[in-house]
Design a binder for these strands. Structure first.
Length: 431
RNA sequence: GGAGAGAUGGCCGAGUAGGUCGAAGGCGCUCGCCUGCUAAGCGAGUAUACUGGGAAACCGGUAUCAAGGGUUCGAAUCCCUUUCUCUCCGCCA
């Protein structure tokens, strides 16, 4: 009862059960609030009963304290002993119901925004815009794994030797390219877009994972430490959003914008057959993340700005992309609205996700207790949280290798990135 | 890893032979008064969550002195466990 990780506003659900359920159904079948009413009623009934008994006990105990000769209040003391036992039993029962209710609420996803396109799957996502010219090649463009190997900058075999499937060793200009992109992105966001750089821990505790929504439902997707209850972060979203967990911010501070580079660790459970070649789906990859804490009235504006900040990376790198508005059936657990940025990959003649920019409404703020006050006197309200990749670094390497490949096998470095590559203009095959 | 000390409201800081302590006092903050401005001064107010009633203003109840459990009619105060912080030793980038 002390801590409240409730996902949706419990009062909203209580009072608008049908509406909430209908909105959740837009996410797909199998999401239901059945059972909520019963648990909630049970909880409140128990709460009433035990609180009444506690009020009685408090009153009588107070009376006892005023009597000097305790032999005169032996009856009351005996009665209260019984009352205390009943309270204990009720509290135990209440605890059980409360935990069940909390777990239930923690596993219900956020309500999708009414503005999100309605649909059942990826196929119903809405393309919003395209940018850049898709390159035409006078030769057959190669997939990035072939380019990486022939340039001797990506070593997939040794990555497997060192660790296992879905781990890759970067080498020479490949390692430098990854590092250059990280610095390029961080510099852009901090100096041009006014984000504050953070370098957070790469493991977090259970509370942090619960606040952003990875737990309790998606533990199988995470790497967990042996011996301590810590998890490797699947995205910088987790530590960075949790920076202000349990805090009350001032309205004048908002919006707060942070950017952070971190590696990301994902089990990728259930994606065994997918993207088995190359850098697309790794257990460890680098990402520069953008995170915002916004006033509720500004969160959608802030999402657009954040999205534009992420797109700017691709524009500066001259990589063609498109923006997709995710439909209600494709939006992630914690989000209410999401735009994906997909970069063009000539090796696969398709657009692939390179960034996902979401608004979470007060979903994460509620789970993590992140609030703000309009002014000194007003009541604290939940902030809105947002985040997006700005960008996934490994996939950016993929996009550069595939889009900038030349007939002679070399890869031209985008102009904006050259200062970060020591002036290098292209990566050429070793002799 | 070993030894010890500690954790109280936005902050500082009282409170340990259990009851009148949601918790003194100070600072900060808010509102009012006062002063020609500033400062000082005076007065009042100043936690959160859940829950019951009410259209609401608001009124009532419960809980919260790191967290969880125990003893007791009653715990900030006693006991146990955990977490975190600090000091010393060891180890280490």
């Amino acid at each position: 009862m002390a801590k409240d990780f409730t996902m949706l506003d419990i009062r909203y659900i209580r009072e608008n059960l049908e509406e909430a359920e209908n909105r959740l159904k837009l996410r797909g079948p199998g999401i239901s609030l059945a059972g909520f009413r019963e648990l909630d009623d049970k909880k409140r009934a128990l709460l009433q009963e035990t609180e009444n008994l506690k009020a009685l006990r408090n009153r009588v105990s107070d009376e006892i304290s005023r009597v000097k000769d305790k032999s005169q209040v032996q009856v009351q003391i005996a009665e209260m002993r019984e009352v205390s036992q009943r309270i204990k039993n009720l509290d135990d029962e209440l605890k059980g119901v409360d935990e069940a209710l909390e777990l239930f609420l923690l596993t219900v996803p956020n309500l999708p925004s009414n503005e999100a396109p309605k649909g059942a799957s990826e196929a119903d996502n809405l393309e919003v815009r395209r940018w850049g010219k898709i390159p035409e090649f006078s030769f057959q463009p190669k997939p990035h794994w072939e380019i990486g190997e022939s340039l001797d900058i990506l070593d997939f075999e040794r990555g497997v030797k060192l660790t296992g499937a879905r781990f890759t060793l970067y080498k020479a200009a490949g390692a430098r390219l990854e590092r250059a992109l990280i610095n390029f992105m961080l510099d852009l966001h901090t100096t041009e877009h006014n984000y504050i750089e953070m370098l957070p821990p790469f493991m977090v505790n259970r509370e942090s994972m619960t606040a952003t929504g990875q737990l309790p439902k998606f533990e199988d997707d995470l790497f967990r430490m042996e011996g301590v209850d810590y998890f490797l972060i699947p995205t910088a979203e987790v530590p960075v959003t949790n920076i202000h967990r349990g805090e009350i911010l001032k309205s004048s501070q908002l919006p707060i914008a942070y950017t952070a580079y971190t590696p990301c660790f994902r089990r990728e459970a259930g994606s065994y057959g997918k993207d088995t070649r190359g850098l697309i789906r790794q257990h460890q990859f680098n990402k520069v993340e953008l995170v915002k804490f916004a006033h509720p009235s500004q969160s959608m504006n802030e999402l657009e700005k954040l999205l534009d900040n992420a797109e700017q990376v691709l524009r500066l790198l001259e990589l063609p992309y498109r923006v997709v508005d995710l439909c209600t059936g494709d939006i992630g657990f914690s989000a209410c609205r999401t735009f994906d940025i997909e970069v063009w990959l000539p090796g696969q003649t398709t657009y692939r996700e390179i960034s996902s920019c979401s608004c979470f409404g007060d979903f994460q703020a509620r789970r993590g207790g992140i609030k703000f006050k309009e002014d000194e006197k007003s009541k604290a309200e939940f902030v809105h949280t947002l985040n997006g990749s700005g960008l996934a670094v490994g996939r950016t390497v993929v996009a550069i290798l595939e889009n900038c490949q030349q007939e002679d096998g070399s890869v031209t470095i985008p102009k904006a990135l050259r200062p970060y590559m020591g002036g290098l203009e292209k990566i050429a095959a070793p002799k």
